[in-house]
Design a protein around this nucleic acid. Structure first.
Length: 588
RNA sequence: GGGGGUGUAGCUCAAUUGGUUAGAGCACCGGACUGUCGAUCCGGAGGUUGCGGGUUCGAGCCCCGUCACCCUCGCCA
C-alpha cells in the first residue's frame, strides 16, 4: 500500500487553514447520515475533525454512506469555514470542517463492543479485554504520554545530577526474605530457578561497591502478592543509589526530582524543604506511618482518664498493657445507630474486638453509645479530645498495635466517607526514624522493618543485640497525601555489622553465606558508605493523573487475579516446554 | 486463605412476595431525510439471565457448589 499522506492531524485545523486542500486520516468516531449530506467525526490521537460529504462528490459520498464506528479511513478534502450558527465550540476544530472529496477505507472495523467515546461508562472488565479500544480514548492516551514525560523528566534530572542508568538482571537469584517471588525455571540447570527481582536492591548496592557512585534506573519489579487498587504484581520503580552520602543527601536529590515533575506536569510547587516527621510521632498522631496531612482528626491518647471509668473494655485493655485512644469525627453526631454499628463491624476487620462511640450534645454532655460509662470523665474527655457539640467520638481500646491500625484506618475512612478531605491540596511529608527491627511473635524472632541491609543509626549499632527494639534505622519514606510514594535508607557498608544484623534476624552464618555471600564478600573489598531510595512510578502517575486505580496508569495491567484479560495470560504450556524445563505439573 | 459487592441482549441497566411470551436506552440491520455534531423519524433483528446442581406446579429472583470482575483483611523484607 502506498504511503498514507497526512497533511494535518485531526486536532490541527483552524480558520487559517480555510480553502486549503488537506489530507487527514484516523478512526470514525461517529457518523450522522442525513441522506443527502453525511457527517463523519474523524479521530486521531490529536483530536476530532468533522468531515462533511456532499452528494456532488458521488464516489466519496457512496463510500461515506457505509462508514461505521472505528473504521480507519483517509480523507482528502477542502478545509472550509462553518457558517455562523453551525460551529461547534466544544471542538478545538469546531470552526471549520473538511469537505470530503475522496475517501479511502484503510480498514473496516467490526462493530466495536464499545465506543472509545463511552468507555467511561463501560465496565473495567470489558475495557481490559479490548484494551486497544480503551486506549484510543484521549484520557488514556494522556496518561500514557504523561507517564513518558515523567520518566523523561526524571532521567534528564538524574543525568544532570551526575547519575548513570545501569540495567540490572531480571533473571536473578531467589532470596526468599520479603515478598513472594516469581520463579523462572532454568532449562540448563534442571531443578534450579531464577527469581524475578522484587527490586534491584542488592545489585544497586553492588554497583556502589563497583565505584558507580551515582546509579539510577527506571525498572520493573515483581512481587507475587495479592494486588490492591494501588498495587500490581508487576510495577515500575525509580530506583537510585548514591555513595559517600548520608540521609539528607538522598532526600535532597529526591525532593529536587519530585519538585521538577510536579512543577512541569501540574505547575504545582512542592514545598522546599518537604517537612519531616518521626515514625513515633506519625503513629501517635495518626496511627499510620504514612499520614495524610490534608486534614486533622488526629488520634488522642486518653488511657489515663479512661482508667478512671468502670468500662470493662477499657479496663481490660489497659490491664493487658494496652492503650485507649480516640478519633473525633466533626459533625458525626448525625450518624445513626446502624451506621455506628457498621463502623464497629468494619473495625473488626482490622483486628479490633469492637469500636465504642459516643456523641457530644449541648452543654458538654455525652449521649448514646458508651456515654453512661463516661459520665465521670466527660469534662476531661471533651477537653482532651477537643470534641465539640455535634461531634462523634470513637474509641479503640486494645494493644497499641491494634489501636493504631484501627484508628489510623478509621480516621481515613471517616474523612473519605464524609468528604472532609480538601481537594486540590498536596501535602508532602518525609517520615523518618523508623525502628530498625520489629519482633514477630509468630516467627518468634526479630524482623527488619525496612530490609536487612538498612543501617541503624551509628549510636545504635553497639546495642544491636542488647536492645534491637530500640534501634532506629537511617530510613526514610516519602509520603504524599497519605500515599507512600517511596522509601529508602542508608545501607550497612561494614561487613561485620551486616553479619550481626543477619544473625539478629535469625539467619545462620551458613544461610547468610548461601543467600548473600556475594554481598558479604563485596563489602570486604572496599565498600563505600552508600544509600538510596526507590519511588513508585505508577503511584506518582496516579497522583498526577488524578486516579486511585493503578490499572488506569498501566497500558496493559493485570486483574485482581493476576490475569491479563486481553492476552489471557497466564496460560497452560505444552508438555514439550515442561519437559525441557524438567518440570511436572502436579495437583491441579 | 478470609470478608463484602457485582454478574440479565454487543454495551449500560430494569424486571412487584417466586407467576403469562425477560423489557428499555444506546449500538446493530433495513428504510426515509441536504446542516448535523448524543442528529431525527419509521421498521426490524438480537437472550444458555456467568456456569453446574437442587428446592418448587413454576426460578432471573430461593438454596448449594463453582467461575469471573471489583473493594478489602492477611500478605506486600
Amino acid at each position: 500500500m502506498a504511503t498514507i499522506v497526512r497533511t494535518h492531524t485531526c486536532g490541527q485545523l483552524r480558520k487559517e487553514h480555510v480553502s486549503q486542500t488537506v489530507q487527514i486520516a484516523g478512526w470514525v468516531n461517529g457518523y450522522r447520515d442525513h441522506g443527502g449530506v453525511i457527517f463523519i467525526d474523524l479521530r486521531d490521537r490529536d483530536g476530532l475533525t468533522q468531515v462533511v460529504f456532499h452528494p456532488e462528490f458521488k464516489e466519496a459520498h457512496d463510500l461515506a454512506n457505509k462508514l461505521r464506528s472505528e473504521d480507519v479511513i483517509h480523507v482528502t478534502g477542502q478545509c472550509v469555514a462553518r457558517e455562523a450558527g453551525m460551529t461547534n465550540p466544544r471542538l478545538a476544530t469546531g470552526e471549520i470542517e473538511v469537505q470530503g472529496s475522496a475517501v479511502t477505507v484503510l480498514n473496516k472495523s467490526q462493530t466495536p463492543p464499545f465506543s472509545p467515546d463511552e468507555a467511561d461508562k463501560v465496565s473495567e472488565e470489558t475495557r481490559l479485554k479490548y484494551r486497544y479500544i480503551d486506549l484510543r480514548r484521549p484520557r488514556m492516551q494522556h496518561v500514557l504520554r504523561t507517564r513518558y514525560r515523567v520518566t523523561k523528566l526524571m532521567r534528564d534530572y538524574f543525568e544532570k545530577q551526575g547519575f548513570t542508568e545501569v540495567e540490572t538482571p531480571f533473571l536473578y537469584k531467589s532470596t526468599p526474605e520479603g515478598a513472594r517471588e516469581f520463579l523462572v525455571p532454568s532449562r540448563i540447570h534442571a531443578g534450579s530457578f531464577y527469581a524475578l527481582p522484587q527490586s534491584p536492591q542488592l545489585f544497586k548496592q553492588i554497583l556502589m561497591m563497583s565505584g558507580m557512585e551515582r546509579y539510577v534506573q527506571i525498572v520493573k519489579c515483581f512481587r507475587d502478592e495479592d494486588p490492591r487498587a494501588d498495587r500490581q504484581a508487576e510495577f515500575t520503580q525509580l530506583d537510585m543509589e548514591m555513595s559517600f552520602v548520608d540521609r539528607d543527601d538522598v532526600m535532597n536529590i529526591i525532593e529536587g526530582c519530585v519538585r521538577i515533575v510536579w512543577k512541569e506536569v501540574l505547575g504545582i510547587d512542592v514545598p522546599n524543604p518537604i517537612p519531616r516527621m518521626g515514625y513515633a510521632e506519625a503513629m501517635n498522631r495518626f496511627g499510620i506511618d504514612r499520614p495524610d496531612m490534608r486534614y486533622g482528626m488526629e488520634l488522642t491518647d486518653i488511657s489515663d482518664i479512661a482508667a478512671k471509668t468502670d468500662f470493662g473494655v477499657f479496663k481490660g485493655a489497659l490491664g493487658a498493657g494496652g492503650t485507649v485512644r480516640t478519633v473525633v469525627l466533626p459533625g458525626g453526631g448525625d450518624m445513626t445507630r446502624k451506621e455506628t454499628d457498621g463502623l464497629a463491624e468494619w473495625a473488626k476487620g482490622f483486628g479490633a474486638k469492637g469500636l465504642a462511640v459516643t456523641k457530644v450534645i449541648a452543654g458538654g454532655k455525652l449521649e448514646t453509645g458508651i456515654a453512661k460509662f463516661l459520665a465521670p470523665i466527660a469534662d476531661d474527655l471533651i477537653e482532651r479530645t477537643g470534641a465539640k457539640e455535634g461531634d462523634l467520638i470513637c474509641f479503640a481500646a486494645d494493644s497499641e498495635k491494634v489501636v493504631f491500625k484501627v484508628l489510623g484506618e478509621l480516621r481515613q475512612k471517616l474523612a473519605r466517607d464524609r468528604k472532609l478531605i480538601p481537594e486540590g491540596q498536596w501535602k508532602w511529608l518525609w517520615v523518618i526514624d523508623f525502628p530498625s527491627f520489629e519482633f514477630d511473635p509468630e516467627l518468634k524472632r526479630w524482623i527488619a522493618l525496612h530490609h536487612p541491609f538498612t543501617s541503624p543509626r551509628d549510636e545504635d549499632i553497639p546495642n544491636l543485640e542488647a536492645k534491637p527494639g530500640e534501634c532506629i534505622a537511617k530510613a526514610y519514606d516519602l509520603v504524599c497525601n497519605g500515599s507512600e510514594l517511596g522509601g529508602g535508607s542508608i545501607r550497612i557498608h561494614n561487613p561485620e555489622v551486616q553479619a550481626r544484623v543477619f544473625k539478629l534476624l535469625g539467619l545462620s552464618e551458613e544461610d547468610a553465606r548461601k543467600k548473600f555471600g556475594f554481598l558479604l564478600d563485596a563489602l570486604k573489598f572496599g565498600a563505600p558508605p552508600h544509600g538510596g531510595i526507590a519511588l513508585g512510578i505508577d503511584r506518582i502517575i496516579m497522583h498526577l493523573c488524578g486516579t486511585t486505580n493503578i490499572r488506569d496508569v498501566i497500558a496493559f495491567p493485570k486483574t485482581q487475579n493476576g490475569a491479563d484479560l486481553m492476552t489471557e495470560a497466564p496460560s497452560q504450556v505444552e508438555d514439550k516446554q515442561l519437559k525441557e524445563l524438567s518440570l511436572r505439573v502436579t495437583g491441579q
